[in-house]
Design a protein around this nucleic acid. Structure first.
Lengths: 127, 127
DNA sequence: GGTTGCGTTGACGCCGGTGTCAATGCCTAA
DNA sequence: TTAGGCATTGACACCGGCGTCAACGCAACC
């Protein structure tokens, strides 16, 4: 399978596939031409990458998952290194949710303050 | 007040103050030298900017808050345009929290799956 | 008058994933 | 043989807030 075909099957671009390869995620043999020749299994790998990227992982985080697939596992997240990344990401997400929740509180407070302020102007209340 | 002094008082850098000015947030008169000369009120403005940036607003979002302060209000968020931005941001934050919560669910599910998998290997269970 | 220290503008770098263009080479069908 | 379609590598562009450096002007003190 050439790069254009894989790109289409994976729903991405050739540029992207080369980028992944440059970062050690996707592998390709080379034809005598120098053209990249992809194994069928790489489609699965690319899907895994796209899925994890969409979830907010970075390319470096994704490497263990790909390695896990290459090691013969059906799922990329069942290996110790992947689990470690999952744990770390979960902690990050938790922390982030916490921060956003705090921020949300402050935004609501400011909105309320602004609304009361404008009520005071129209209805002459005593703050 | 010269730029270095304002930068120190505001806990930021001169580079940053020029950047804010370039984006229409901070104002300065000029000495005969060409040196920027800052009004005392600009310190308040810079603090407002820093605070909102820290909360995740972008410079464009912050502009109405600064305008609100310049209009003579004690608080930058009591003007209609500011309120509009606050509402939008609150919606964004809500949406983002939702997405992160979903993601969190998926991460937990994958972790559980991985853990059960490894238990199966050590304890010969029947999935 | 030279040094030191602050001011000025302008420009590049970073991060991360990808679009996009350029210059060039291979393959295939008309 | 020529066109055009796909391949190759390399490099620039983007976003956003700022660090950082360059090359220079002005102020003040010794």
């Amino acid at each position: 399978m050439l790069i254009g075909e894989l790109a289409e099957k994976a729903g991405t671009s050739t540029r992207t596939l080369r980028y992944y390869e440059q970062h050690g995620l996707v592998r390709a043999d080379r034809d005598a031409n120098g053209y990249r020749q992809y194994d069928d299994a790489e489609l699965r790998v690319v899907h895994e990458i796209r899925s994890l990227l969409a979830a907010g992982f970075g390319l470096d985080d994704i490497r263990p998952f790909v390695a896990c697939l290459r090691a013969g596992n059906d799922l990329g997240h069942v290996c110790p290194d992947s689990v470690e990344v999952l744990r770390r990401k979960l902690a990050e997400v938790d922390s982030y949710i916490g921060q956003l929740t705090d921020l949300r509180q402050r935004l609501r407070a400011q909105l309320n303050e602004a609304v009361e302020e404008s009520l005071c102007q129209t209805m002459t209340c005593q703050p």
